[in-house]
Design a protein around this nucleic acid. Structure first.
Lengths: 400, 400
DNA sequence: TATGTTTGTTTTCAATCCAAACAAACGGAA
DNA sequence: TTCCGTTTGTTTGGATTGAAAACAAACATA
């Protein structure tokens, strides 16, 4: 590991991180923040400016400086480039572009036929969508990376091990994507629930929480776990299948998956089935929610049952993880607003008295969440130390 | 962050790590392994040797070198010092000493009255035990750290938030310990189940697994989760309460904790209660195991039920974590040997077909596991980069 | 004995950060 | 207005480190 470059790399990343979080900051402030000397901070800022990542910003708006010489401020150069998040959803492709400051600067959707989801064709359509999106940006922005997200288990190499919704198995999606994109473009692939979690987490720039859990309620129930800012993937990438937690002998609905699972109690089909059980009838969750809002008895009973098992599941996850926060997302999550107190009561009932209760809240992200999350992961990577570069064992086998 | 010292620190730690894992290794091999030049490796080895951490070892046993000049080997200096693990167990104090090569070199137990477990007195007794243990070693070894372990929730600061078994609450145990020990001795504190997990993990030096889960079956059921070599603590230190996972409406036994919890199905009391339910009678687990081994009908039925819920719990944890391995420990764990196939069948039944099944095995560690684990954590710290030293923000406020 | 190979050391060099000194830019006091 | 203190950014010199290359040493084999 080369000594000069490693420390320099670490410090560059840390400077970028400070600038990202503070928005507009003087060299002296960077130095103070990181425990560097002003001269070092200046040198690093100069490097990064030359590379195009930073620009000077001496706009006169708020130089609230008190005494002494005012600083010369720098900020991230939002024209440096964009990160692309490309989500393969349920019959829908969503592509977003995030700029250097992690703001969505462009977005695009297109549909595909779920019944005939040939990987090659989907990739083609995806690339087309990406290209049309980047064309409008390419005058000012360079594409600095692309992250693919999909509803399935994805391993470290970017192979989709299985994606039941798309009908894919053992699909080396990242390899295929690599072949039709510019050579040097950094690529990544991630499960959609994991990406959604990253999007949600990345909004709140505070990294003070140790553990957060994300639960996505749709027909099925998925999830993601973030520990110290890192996603838990497990050995093969299967981690986070929170819908398959077993909470009882028999769910409210018989699913193709596992009997008595979390999702067989609180997923969309479970809600509608339970509603029918109580004598109600609704074609979708919105109808059911309306019935609940007008205090219809069958709907309220259904909500009570739903709360019971959501509370049981949340309590179980709390026992395991002691998370600071549990975030609910997906189309069914909004039911939580209709029965917060019941859920919290059930959570408490299923934990020991002194056990800390996590904050539970609803996600504000919509269907473009996974795409934003994928792009956020690339953005985060830019602000993270490249461990490979520091802990490289076995120097690169020269010319093989 | 000072540039020279940081890289040096990283490289020193990496050299120590290589030497620890390889046992006896030449400078050239260290250089190759780490991608350093031989000159750099030599320089670092010289520093570490001067510090007393390494010693030359040119014993003639196995210099299986082929062609070329043979290397001069170094190994860890086992006389450099020891790490102490001190466990407060159920009426029993266990103290172990680990040498530089993570081998147990001394061990000592003593009992205390659980009904009258005054923290001050326990600490006094513990320190006495530690001192008598280290006295015999002090001729050759310096004490390099002490880790306290206890059956309770311990926060980042070393305060025991609650330890029901000991009857302690909000006990700043590490602060109190610090006052009666030499000033500069590095101290740590950890939950006993977490420490047990570290002991188990540290034996197998291969770090290739991403996630491992440890379940401890006694009267209660505890656990620990290791991800990328790191323990999951959660927000306040409560993580790993696997016994409180909820798997059904009602357990085999009514516990003071939570109805339908994992431990109310598979803990010691649950086993014995279920055995009585099936018409058997046993005063402890060993008696029950004997009955099962002689194929007694009631015992076999109990085992079947036990397997059912152990399988359900393991499947739930597998859905959440996708671990490479689940290790069972504690006095009740050995029942697993009597019904492996049943458990595995139940695990499979509660997972989707393609879901990877973790290896399940029994721990080989006995009651001194937590103490060994605590000491192992200190040993591991010696081989780990001190992030504080590298990512220090806000340089130390001089002279305050 | 000569040759090739591998090891460990020495020397030289480049990169980096820190400490200290300095010039510049500002506010406020005299 | 002028002077002084404060803060900023830059420059210079010093120290530490790792890499690269050259070299001497130690061994096996022909």
């Amino acid at each position: 590991m080369s000594m000069p470059s490693a420390v320099r790399h670490i410090n560059e990343v840390r400077v970028l991180d400070v600038v990202f979080r503070q928005g507009k900051v003087s060299r002296a402030n960077i130095a103070r923040e990181l425990g560097l000397t002003r001269s070092t901070a200046s040198s690093i800022v100069a490097s990064l400016t030359e590379e195009g990542l930073l620009v000077e910003d001496n706009s006169e708006d708020d130089k609230s400086a008190g005494t002494g010489r005012p600083g010369t401020f720098v900020r991230l150069n939002s024209n440096y480039g964009v990160f692309i998040g490309a989500d393969i959803g349920v019959g829908r492709l969503t592509v977003v572009a995030l700029d250097m400051e992690a703001r969505v600067v462009a977005q695009s959707q297109s549909n595909f036929d779920l019944a005939d989801a040939d990987p090659e064709r989907i990739i083609q359509q995806l690339v087309k969508t990406v290209k049309s999106l980047t064309k409008s940006l390419s005058q000012t922005h360079t594409v600095r990376g692309l992250c693919l997200t999909a509803p399935g288990v994805i391993d470290r190499t970017g192979t989709i091990l299985r994606a039941p919704i798309l009908g894919w198995r053992q699909e080396p999606i990242l390899d295929k994507l690599e072949k039709v994109l510019p050579e040097d473009l950094p690529l990544a692939a991630e499960n959609d629930a994991n990406a959604f979690a990253m999007a949600e987490m990345y909004r709140s720039k505070d990294e003070s929480t140790d553990t957060e859990i994300y639960i996505f309620l749709d027909a099925g129930v998925g999830g993601a776990i973030v520990n110290s800012g890192q996603l838990l993937h497990g050995q093969d990438g299967y981690a986070g299948e929170l819908g398959h937690i077993i909470l009882g002998d028999e769910g409210f609905v018989e699913l193709a998956t596992i009997s008595g699972s979390f999702e067989s109690f609180i997923g969309r089909e479970a809600v509608l089935a339970r509603y029918r059980f109580h004598g109600g009838s609704a074609g979708n969750i919105d109808e059911f929610a309306s019935a609940a809002r007008r205090q219809e008895r069958a709907a309220l009973s259904t909500l009570t049952d739903w709360s019971f098992y959501l509370g049981r599941g949340v309590a179980t996850l709390t026992s395991i993880f002691n998370p600071a926060r549990i975030v609910l997302g997906g189309p069914v999550a909004m039911l939580y607003d209709l029965c917060r107190d019941q859920v919290m009561a059930n959570v408490r009932q299923n934990l020991l008295d002194e056990h800390p209760i996590p904050e539970i809240r609803l996600s504000k992200l919509g269907p473009e969440g996974p795409a934003i999350g994928g792009a956020s992961m690339l953005h985060k990577r830019m602000l993270s130390v490249d461990e490979e570069l520091i802990y490289r064992r076995n120097r690169p086998p020269a010319g093989r």
